[in-house]
């Protein structure tokens, strides 16, 4: 655990908090892509299946407890978000702007996970699938943003925190590479792709929102 990793995780938590705050405060899920939220839920469940494995034989360190708590928070908050979007605030969701075809993303990531993984076991392929899927899970949301052309400020704060947390993970990996000889190509390449997908968004967020303007696409 280093300062980059912990900051990134806290920023990820903050992004989830902002999203829940946005929905509760405005009592609306307008501007939020259900498809992206669904993909994140699939990502968390596929990746954190190890929660259901026996922990008895693992050495129990503080970081293990930390990971377990975070995994439970990520899974439960993403399922809760789906509930809010599909039930509680359903009337405020506009499916006509959320039209990205996630079937292709799911199929592509499954194919890549079957082809490029560290070990060909069910758990390992699902973990790899979740890494690839997380990298592209924001695409329906960015697509929705480009269709509507503008976003509420709180929604842009959510997206910024969500994108920036992965950017800080890049620093964490550089740090770990130097300090621990840690190497993980699957995670590194996916993380770089994930961060790159946000570059346009980061630019507009910096140009407009940070200068007190509304987020409007040029």
């Amino acid at each position: 655990m280093n300062v980059f990793r912990i900051s990134a995780d806290l920023l990820h938590l903050l992004s989830i908090f902002i999203l829940l705050l946005k929905m509760q405060k405005t009592r609306s899920v307008a501007g939020i892509s259900f498809k992206t939220q669904l993909l994140y839920t699939i990502v968390f469940i596929a990746r954190y299946l190890d929660l259901f494995e026996s922990h008895a034989e693992k050495s129990f360190e503080l970081v293990t407890l930390y990971n377990i708590v975070m995994k439970i928070i990520f899974i439960s908050s993403s399922v809760y978000t789906l509930y809010l979007m599909k039930k509680k605030f359903r009337a405020t969701y506009d499916p006509n702007t959320d039209t990205f075809r996630i079937e292709y993303l799911l199929a592509l990531c499954l194919f890549l996970a079957l082809m490029f993984n560290y070990r060909f076991t069910v758990m390992e392929v699902l973990w790899t699938f979740s890494i690839y899927l997380e990298a592209v899970a924001i695409l329906p949301q960015l697509f929705m943003l480009s269709r509507t052309g503008e976003a509420e400020t709180i929604t842009t704060h959510y997206l910024f925190a969500l994108g920036f947390y992965r950017a800080i993970y890049l620093l964490n990996w550089i740090w770990r590479f130097h300090m621990e000889d840690y190497v993980d190509w699957i995670v590194w390449i996916s993380g770089a792709v994930q961060t790159a997908l946000y570059s346009d968004f980061f630019y507009i967020y910096y140009k407009k929102v940070l200068h007190g303007e509304k987020f409007v696409l040029p």
Binding site: R5, D9, H12, D50, V63, N67, M70, K71, F74, Y118, R119, E124, W127, Y169, V183, D184, V187
Partner: peptide, 10 residues
Amino acid sequence: RDEKNVKDEL
């Protein structure tokens, strides 16, 4: 990457 393939990140 070591043989145990420890996944200690989230």
